[in-house]
Amino acid sequence: MSSELIRYKDICVDFHGSRLFSKFNLIVNQGDKLILKGRSGSGKSTLLKILLGILHVDDGEIFYRGRKVSASNIWDIRKEIAYVSQDTDIGEGIVKDLINEIFSFDHNRGRKYHRKRNSLIEYFGLDRSIVYKKFEDLSGGEKQRICIIISVLLGKEIFLLDEVTSALDPELKEKVVDFFLENEDWTLLVVSHDNTWDRVAMDEIFVDGCEINA
């Protein structure tokens, strides 16, 4: 039986003085693999950001595991959701140090990640020496894969993936898509213009501003 994980209820968001969404509704169940579609600027990324409390809604509510998302529980919710954003701008410095610092956060401390990190680096077609390079010197595609690897290493089961395959070549796109779809327990909320995601049956949600019900 699938259980409800995330519910967008009558979400309204204003942006630059005009209404981006009015009364957007969506239910995401555990294990769902949803892809958000719509023209650019329609607010797909915004939907991911408001779930993480990075942007705030002007009206409506979001529920996470049945509880209304608020300032008091957003910190715990963020710890359960992996978010890979489209800008891949996660910091600067040596990749290894960046990753180590993330795993020194109170919440992540004690999590074993070195071996898995190395195997993911190989799986995604990167050279192991990449961890000694500076993050800011990497190519767009390399940055995307490092961000994906970090999100996986954190051991979460809900993924918000915002255009995470855009800078990858077709073969790698397939690999990334396979990797995420393989795991039945994982819940995915994907924003992508890549049709690689389309070859599998993912539920498509069309975001175009008004009165969406799914």
Partner: peptide, 14 residues
């Protein structure tokens, strides 16, 4: 670089 700050939050940082 607000993106970097936000991504650290999403990586589980307080």
């Amino acid at each position: 670089n607000e993106n970097r700050y936000v991504s650290r939050l999403s990586f589980g940082a307080g």
